[in-house]
Nucleic acid binder design. Structure first.
Lengths: 188, 188
DNA sequence: TGTTTTGCCTAATACCTTTAGGTAGCCTAG
DNA sequence: CTAGGCTACCTAAAGGTATTAGGCAAAACA
């Protein structure tokens, strides 16, 4: 009986890859076992079940996305930072649609607190340093950026922009220009 | 053997109600049959199966949402229209979270073409009449509005704004003010 | 009233999830 | 270098969901 040498991390990573290939919804313990060449029951040593598997994929994806955003932000400020941050999100979603979908999973409070929860908020907040926003204005601005970036990315991924011209690549910078203007005159 | 007197429409509507109560993901042929007091197999006379059921719920939700948006837009123009339109989306999502989630389902090209596909785009476009935008500018603007409204709504529904102050109701008008400004100086 | 339609049923098959309990590779201690 | 334990993987079994096939009786209609 040759061992496959699995571990929790390998299983979750394989699950994330599977999600990117067939969609997060389609990630199932059975499909993952098939892909890994083991029996279904074997995976239950590594993950707690279907729900746990999805949660762990979501946490992995959230972490990877935060890494990218963090890297994009390094050494930038103001509009530069905004464009790089938004681009990191969009690129991640296009390269890893399954992982991106996973980040939208509604996590249980404990799971959310367990790590990436605050990290994303902190990163978004970091963009705003160049705009001089504080207090409630800062919170509003964080929500604006999150809404625009997630909204656009999510609609693009869903194919909502597929059957109209010009291509979304043309719209994206226009929207970011607008958000930059908004942030510069945001203080309320 | 008393008949329940079901029909395609009743089944789909019950499915949409179920989605609002337990979440769109949890809508299953079995659960719906239980709720309707019939055997699972009986539903297969009314809908083509799990996939077809979800698609029909999505189309119903899309239609209801378009009705609301259309009503909100009637007799308004410019910022008034924008605020009413965005409010209709957000209110619909909060009153009918399951239906709103259903509208995010990736429809097959035929299903999308079958009706509500263009209706939403047309409605969003109608907002812009007050802003005097045409051609590519109009398309960009439609995408901006869609991104912001869907992004904010979706994050709010996912609970992303739950653990920070001020409440989202305070952020919403700020964002719409900003979008209004953006649209007024949009021509590019 | 007799016929057709059809709404709902039982039965059967197949797949996914999860738990219980067994077997054999691998690691480490003596 | 071998005896023990750990654990990665297995088989077996039970329960839920999806789907199809075929039957019966209530409803609709002539």
């Amino acid at each position: 009986m040759a061992r496959a040498g699995l571990s929790s991390e390998k299983v979750v990573r394989a699950g994330a890859d599977l999600a990117d290939e067939v969609g997060f919804e389609q990630v199932t313990v059975s499909a993952l076992a098939r892909r890994l060449g083991v029996r279904v029951a074997s995976l239950y040593s590594h993950v707690g079940g279907s729900e746990d598997l999805r949660t762990r994929i979501a946490l992995l994806a959230l972490d990877e996305l935060a890494d990218r955003a963090s890297e994009a932000l390094a050494g930038r400020a103001g509009k530069d930072a905004l464009v790089a941050f938004a681009g990191a999100y969009r690129d991640f979603a296009r390269e890893h649609p399954g992982r991106y979908a996973a980040t939208r999973l509604r996590l249980s409070p404990e799971a959310a607190a367990s790590g990436p929860g605050g990290r994303h908020a902190d990163l978004t907040r970091a963009i705003l340093r160049g705009y001089g926003l504080t207090g409630a204005d800062q919170t509003h601005a964080v929500r604006l950026i999150g809404s625009v970036v997630h909204g656009f990315t999510s609609l693009e991924l869903a194919g909502s922009f597929d059957h109209s011209n010009p291509p979304p690549d043309r719209t994206w910078p226009r929207i970011l220009d607008g958000v930059d203007d908004m942030l510069r005159s945001w203080a309320g």
